[in-house]
Amino acid sequence: MLAVMARRMAAALPTLAGVVVVTFLLARALPGDPAAYFAGPAATREAVEQIRAALGLDRPLHEQFLLYLRDLARGDLGVSITTGQPVLHDILARLPASAELTLLGLLFAATVGITLGVLAALKPNGWLDNACRVVATLGVCLPAFFTGLLLIYVFYYLLGWAPAPLGRLDAFSSPPPYVTGFFLVDSLLAGDAETFVSAAQQIALPAIALGIFAVAPIARITRGSMLAVMGSDFIRAARAHGLSRRKVVVAYALRNALLPVVTTLGMVFSFLLGANVLVEKVFAWPGIGSYAVEALLVSDYAPVQGFVMTMGFLYVLLNLAIDLLYRVIDPRVEVAA
């Protein structure tokens, strides 16, 4: 298992190298001029040139690239001019926020999606199946930020049930001591029920907004896969042997139907990390998506590069995790390096 992981990681290196080159070039191909932006509104041409030199942007491109690689080798991703902090520090501080939100959104989507899919498959073309189809279609049609705004409008503005969309905690709580960076986990570890409740209330709406978007593919794939499995011989045999319906559906059918669902989950997860950007904006969620977008708007290269690198790395890890999960679900699957 470890050998497999090591080989897979080694195979990912060329991908990551490609990511490094492409992000470097893309960031510089952007139409902005960071020097002009950061020189401030009152800048003269000389002041802009001064800043350009200070940022190293006056050197030839290949030299800039070598400098970038040297810093990268030291684990230095540069300093963000927008927040004034080292990029590595920013990303490490913000990644847990994004990850917590995405994981919870995925959990919501998977729970709802798989349940809906299974129920729909048990009675194809019944009312539940049709309802599932409507929910799935609506979920896909509405962009996540729109669902987010709608949820805020209804549950916060009109009904007042949800807390103010102010980020991870309400304004009067302070974050729990840092262990994992996940506020839900950290507050439990610290035994701080109040902070846990606050964090849970804050994350509920954005996670649902994010999750609704992902319900559709999961429900549809589960339904299709379940239909195929329910029609197969071993299910008929199980039924003929008089096994309980519950046993047949959950233990035999679902487990076999789960493989394509897991593949979809992996895809949906990477996709949610992207959709995050908009939901983070709407809910003032301090994740890496909104961080990258803000940096992009002012041509702040370092955070953009850092963000793409982090995402590239995450995808590689995610793919590996999914391959390994296959083996757990279905021992017949070989994990190739």
Binding site: I152, P165, G167, A284
Partner: peptide, 15 residues
């Protein structure tokens, strides 16, 4: 607090 969405800032004030 930083709230990037203008609509949300208004909602926060009105509530």
């Amino acid at each position: 607090r930083i709230v990037p969405q203008a609509g949300n800032r208004r909602a926060l004030l009105e509530r």
